[in-house]
């Protein structure tokens, strides 16, 4: 493996042959925004957030799939790239129903975090408010298509880490959606191993563990009754 030297954002760095720009930049402490990238599963260059400018190439290229080359000059944070990244995120927010306040992922959502980091304070595009369903048929997990950004991280981890091949994509364009087996309810899936890797992979609240949603949160009033009984009636019954 020959080492390559290249420049990212004016910083001279070295990288191993075969590494991607994203890997090289991360090693050098340069942060490039990503969304469909997930450490451990192969990259597909779909979300277009990690697009970078390479001197001598007219096209913008995704850092997650672009391999390092000797003498390459890469810019990851130009005004133009920042503008496109914000627009990409705006498009995502307008595409489906992302309502942070009632989302299981509120506070630990990659889409939300990215939007903050890119200075996105409002969406200029008209929300499309599509009608998407929620698949709650599985014993342990749920899938809310309203929050899905189609990054396919769940599909890739299901196929290439778990090897179950349960998750897939059906449909085209904006009508694409993540399906289970041959578009069956998740609960009926025979291939799902219930490993939960898809839930771990999800950057938003589209895939979640049951019991964690706002709607499912319960108030344990029994506890209150226990204490009141103990204090007033001196009854210590559980």
């Amino acid at each position: 493996m020959a080492a390559k030297t290249l420049t990212i954002d004016g910083k001279q760095i070295t990288a191993e042959e075969g590494e991607t720009i994203l890997q090289a930049a991360t090693e050098a402490g340069i942060k490039i925004p990503t969304l469909c990238h997930l450490e451990g599963v192969y990259d597909i260059g779909a979300c277009r957030l990690c697009l970078v400018e390479v001197t001598g190439t007219p096209k913008l290229l995704p850092a997650c799939t672009l391999k390092v080359a000797e003498g390459m000059e890469v810019s990851t944070d130009t005004e133009r790239l920042r503008k496109y990244r914000r627009m990409t995120l705006e498009l995502l927010f307008a595409e489906r129903n992302h309502v942070c306040a009632v989302c299981v992922a509120n506070g630990h959502c990659e889409l939300q975090t990215l939007a903050y980091s890119q200075g996105l304070d409002h969406v200029r595009y008209e929300y499309t408010f599509p009608k998407w369903s929620v698949d709650n048929t599985h014993r342990l997990f749920g899938m809310d298509h309203n929050r899905c950004i189609l990054c396919t991280r769940c599909v890739r981890s299901c196929w290439h880490i778990e090897g179950a091949g349960t998750k897939n994509v059906s449909g085209r364009g904006g009508k694409s959606r993540i399906i289970t087996d041959l578009n069956q309810p998740w609960g009926d899936s025979e291939s799902c191993t219930e490993c939960g890797k898809c839930v771990m992979s999800c950057p938003t609240g589209a895939l979640f563990k049951k019991g964690s949603t706002v709607g499912e949160s319960v108030r344990d009033r029994d506890k209150l009754e226990f204490i009141v009984n103990a204090r007033e009636k001196k009854q210590w019954n559980a």
Binding site: I44, G45, A46, C47, R48, T88, L91, L92, A94, E95, Y125, E126, T128, I149, L150, T152, V169, G171, R172, G173, G174, K175, S176
Partner: peptide
Amino acid sequence: CMDESCGKCIPCRAGTVQ
């Protein structure tokens, strides 16, 4: 183009709709 977008990348999938 909106109908025929494959849905993989965001600009084409959501941008054509807008």
